[in-house]
Nucleic acid binder design. Structure first.
Lengths: 195, 195
DNA sequence: GATCCTTTACGAGACTGATTAGTCTCGCTA
DNA sequence: TAGCGAGACTAATCAGTCTCGTAAAGGATC
């Protein structure tokens, strides 16, 4: 995390403050959950006055939405442009996706979104569009390159499901911490089904 | 791993009251969530004085634990004993499991457990053992009857994952309400992979 | 540049109003 | 003599507002 040496806050709201607030929100909400984490805690964590938060964000809900958006944003799928065979690129894509999504923070984010899914369905949609949806689209494209474009979407769904598998369920439910090799094995087993 | 919830063992507390409280808690917490649902609401829903709840349960957390335990318990998988071919019985098992697990109450229970997975991992383990784990075991047994017993556990995992598929993710994330046919389609598509 | 002046973001924290877990009291009943 | 229903009561939490004093940016004039 780089620290801007000489921020020059002008007339407008300091973007550095916004970033600090989001970082504080990430720390607090990932530690205590969206519902339990308080705005006072976010302000303290960010080293910021509470009013400053409300100058940058309309409400707690708006802050949560912005945080989810920010945490989902980096999750952009960069399709490997290498001239590898499509099957190989699909494998790499799945590996990268699983590695990203099994990060402790990613798991906590997923848990927090699932917890609030009923009250804030927008969060779920945001998360779905930003992360899981994109991988499915990318894999479907790769699949369509070498096979039938008609079946590609369904097979992409199935591949992602199998790549995550029970290991991800255990991670989400907090019943175990699967080793990375497990996911690699799941991915290879999934790909083998279409060979 | 029974969770002790009775503050004063030995007292004569009406078991019917305990059941009524749990039923009220189920109604309230499944309607409003564990965090939002209040003890006053549970008391009103159960037709019970608030103090009676605290005579039976040490705290709100204890009540939640007891409720989760109670809701997980009945989720027993009854393997179809009919003399149908194994493939047919696997299909029925998957259909029954999916139908059970996509119930609004089941989804809310799952959400609540995921939300508290970090703070109360025991609940996650309880849920996993009571529901998802059992289906996998049952399907693996059926698969082993007609195919290789060595690959059965892995294939059972994969079948369950594919049966739930993206539709279950959307349900959990609150982004949509998939029609039952979707799950049937996913199950048939999954089974077709091994035909 | 240098000196003033106005405006605005900011940290700190007091404050409000609403909610709620948990306790206490009382009168009823089996 | 219990458990019980009803509900008042306490204490804590928390979203959101308001008010301070401060620092600094942008502009104006010299």
């Amino acid at each position: 995390m780089t620290i801007s040496t000489s921020p020059r806050p002008g007339r407008v709201l300091d973007p550095a403050k916004r970033a600090a607030i989001l970082e504080g929100a990430r720390a607090v909400f990932m530690r205590e959950g969206f519902a339990q984490g308080s705005m006072d805690a976010v302000a303290a964590e960010a080293g910021v006055g509470k009013q400053t938060i409300y100058r940058h964000f309309r409400s707690k809900e708006a802050l949560v939405e912005a945080l989810v958006e920010a945490m989902c944003a980096p999750e952009v799928v960069r399709p490997p442009t290498k001239s590898l065979p499509a099957a190989q690129r699909i494998r790499e894509l799945l590996l990268a996706f699983v590695a990203d999504v099994t990060t402790p923070d990613s798991v906590r984010l997923y848990r927090a979104i699932v917890a609030e899914a009923e009250r804030m369905p927008g969060l779920g949609r945001l998360f779905w569009q930003a992360g899981p949806r994109q991988v499915r689209v990318a894999i479907a494209q790769l699949w369509a390159e070498e096979h039938d474009a008609g079946t590609a979407p369904v097979i992409a769904e199935q591949l992602v499901q199998l790549a995550l598998g029970d290991a991800y369920q255990e991670l989400v439910l907090g019943t175990g911490l699967p080793r990375p090799e497990v996911f690699e094995r799941q991915i290879d087993a999934a790909l083998a089904l279409w060979e």
